[in-house]
């Protein structure tokens, strides 16, 4: 049909992908006040787990939707034990944490490149397949894997919302975001809650990795290239807030798709995301839904 309707569909796909990655990033920030620069490379890891399963071992990609979250969650939990907990116990400051995350990001990215090489690879799937009725009824293109991204993201994030709102674990995570010391004093096993937060964050971004692998393609800087956009989503929505990350993801995705029509240059999509992020930081650093508390 027309460009605008197509842009809406594209925004939904992109926003759904961003949201899966952004929610995990913001949860870790909320609970640990840690800006995890390795989050993007964890997404890449998820994408390559999909590649190993689908291309190297010739198994159905569907398996990757289980395996990638498990592997990346395990990696994330591993970093908590090996890297983050010891660093917190040593009383590390902000710059130390930032640089540790950068070091971890570099290590992971080049380890991936060491194992899988630096080229672009594709899953053995038909990612030109489109949803017929969308094409027939509206004359719009919606790829099969785009639709899958939207649906999986929706289902998973509703699950996450329920977890956060209704379960003891989710409530503990929110309690830690509010006030770690008080959570500890109230009897919350903070170490255990932190481990589960990493697991959840890793699982979500691992899943995002497989979807990115299917809808974009697989290469070692896939996640790093998405990371600043994901930061933009998190910050626009309000860092530390899961609902904020969700909202921010769609705000960024829609702004990118529509402003790119205005600029008339596809290559500036990423830049548009950054610019919006910077503007939000200057005007309202706590974002749309974030609390002042989280940014102080």
């Amino acid at each position: 049909m027309d460009e605008l309707a197509q842009a809406v569909l594209n925004s939904l796909t992109a926003g759904s992908l961003y949201a899966l990655a952004a929610v995990g990033l913001t949860l870790v920030y909320g609970v640990l006040r840690l800006t995890n620069f390795a989050h993007g490379d964890m997404l890449t890891l998820g994408a390559y787990v999909g590649y190993a399963i689908n291309v190297q071992w010739n198994l159905p990609l569907a398996l990757a939707f289980v395996a990638a979250p498990v592997v990346v969650a395990a990696f994330a939990v591993g970093t908590e034990y090996v890297v983050w907990r010891p660093l917190r116990r040593a009383g590390a400051g902000l710059l130390q944490k930032l640089l540790m995350a950068i070091g971890l990001a570099l290590f992971l990215r080049y380890a991936i490149q060491f194992v899988w090489g630096g080229d672009r690879d594709f899953y053995e799937i038909d990612n030109t397949a489109t949803i017929a009725w969308v094409r027939d009824a509206f004359d719009l293109t919606l790829g099969f894997y785009d639709l899958l991204t939207i649906v999986i993201s929706l289902v998973v994030l509703v699950g996450v919302a329920l977890l956060l709102a209704r379960t003891l674990l989710g409530t503990s995570m929110r309690a830690l975001s509010d006030d770690v010391d008080l959570a500890e004093s109230s009897g919350v096993d903070t170490d255990r809650t932190v481990v589960w937060t990493w697991a959840l964050s890793g699982a979500l971004v691992g899943l995002a990795g497989v979807l990115a692998g299917a809808t974009i393609n697989v290469y070692p800087t896939l996640g790093w290239d998405l990371l600043l956009t994901i930061f933009a989503c998190v910050i626009v929505g309000g860092i530390g807030s899961a609902y904020g990350a969700l909202l921010g993801s769609y705000v960024i995705a829609f702004s990118q798709e529509f402003l790119v029509l205005v600029v008339d240059d596809q290559r500036y999509k990423t830049t548009i995301g950054f610019v919006i992020m910077v503007l939000v930081l200057l005007v309202r650093p706590q974002g749309i839904l974030g609390s002042k508390r989280a940014v102080n």
Binding site: P86, L87, A90, L99, I102, G103, L106, F107, R109, Y110
Partner: peptide, 23 residues
């Protein structure tokens, strides 16, 4: 290519070790 990757793995690891043990 693999040697180059290894080099930067070492750089990342070195950064982590310095930050952790000799900030």
């Amino acid at each position: 290519a693999q040697e180059a990757s290894l080099r930067y793995m070492v750089v990342g690891l070195a950064l982590m070790l310095i930050v952790r043990f000799r900030p």
